[in-house]
Design a protein around this nucleic acid. Sequence first.
DNA 1: TACCCGCGTTCGTCAAACCGAACAAACAGA
DNA 2: TCTGTTTGTTCGGTTTGACGAACGCGGGTA
Lengths: 186, 186
Amino acid sequence: MATEPAPPLATIAAALRRERDRAGLSLTELARRAGIAKSTLSQLESGAGNPSVETLWALGVALGVPFSRLVEPPVAAVRVVRAGEGPRIRSEHADFSATLLAAGAPHTRRDVYVMELEPGAVRVAEAHTPRSVEHVVVAAGRMRVGPETDPVELGPGDYATFPGDIPHRYEALAPGTFAVLVMEHP
Amino acid sequence: MATEPAPPLATIAAALRRERDRAGLSLTELARRAGIAKSTLSQLESGAGNPSVETLWALGVALGVPFSRLVEPPVAAVRVVRAGEGPRIRSEHADFSATLLAAGAPHTRRDVYVMELEPGAVRVAEAHTPRSVEHVVVAAGRMRVGPETDPVELGPGDYATFPGDIPHRYEALAPGTFAVLVMEHP
DNA sequence: TACCCGCGTTCGTCAAACCGAACAAACAGA
DNA sequence: TCTGTTTGTTCGGTTTGACGAACGCGGGTA
């Protein structure tokens, strides 16, 4: 299940109208500033249409609003992702899956995952962005994590951090292992 | 306030390719999962093309990546974040303790805690810095967390995020409860 | 060697996003 | 009332994004 909490087209329509009269602009005026035909804007706000990125971007700029505000639904006070829900990233080889819980705001990438893996398989990750850092807290089970050259063994409650820009591994040592993984990208 | 000086088309091309091989998918496979023609994806990654929102959204879902990550520039702000040995925080009233695992640099706080608490006591936190955000993943036990007005109940593997700038609470519902807490301060 | 996958690219076709203009409705001033 | 302006909508025409097929390439296997 667990597709993105996605209502794409309808949200855009709502967001456009909301942001437009928040800015106190007429449809005609906004279309002029964004450099698009007002007919296009009219159809977008009425929910019909599937804008190109360029079009939507121009509107974002004209509204003085970050792009994401036009596509993301308004933030709820509390957002809950139940165990087993959420966008999953799965490995084909290893018995491994991770769920993206929260992605950092546009410019600050700080992702929180829940990671589940079973013993007998090793998840090897290539080097990521330079200066990225990973944090792992084991919640249940037992695992060996860290740089290929220098892994450590962790039990419940144990914490480790290591650079993400060198090859590293995740390996479960006990069944039912799951852990919280925080990744920081510069 | 030039919220977005970035030409989006080139960034999308780069982001797509970056996220795709991070996921370890071939172009053909990703196109299949996203339900788009691989020719379309090929042109997008090569920088030619101006995708529609629907197309880009499908790719975001297939990659297990939020939409905004595909349009925002990669950003190369160089910041050094080193893991710090933090003080143990103890509450006098509640049966609660937290350990600071990693703290961000002075201005960009990005703190990771492990939190242990026992039932029968409630840890109430006042509002923190404006725009701060908290993330909680329950590792073991059961707890009720969130804004005072609107708490939720979480079990192992469950995740919740909520604003930290309003009063909120942590309450264990089962013995041996511990959780990972990530706090973001702007 | 020959064969057969899967990889990513290029090309021709079609639907649709975008445009410009024309449109009805609402309001202002003379 | 008449004219001018502004509102947002709808209507053909053009541009172009998305599709599917065909292509060349490289790595296995017989």
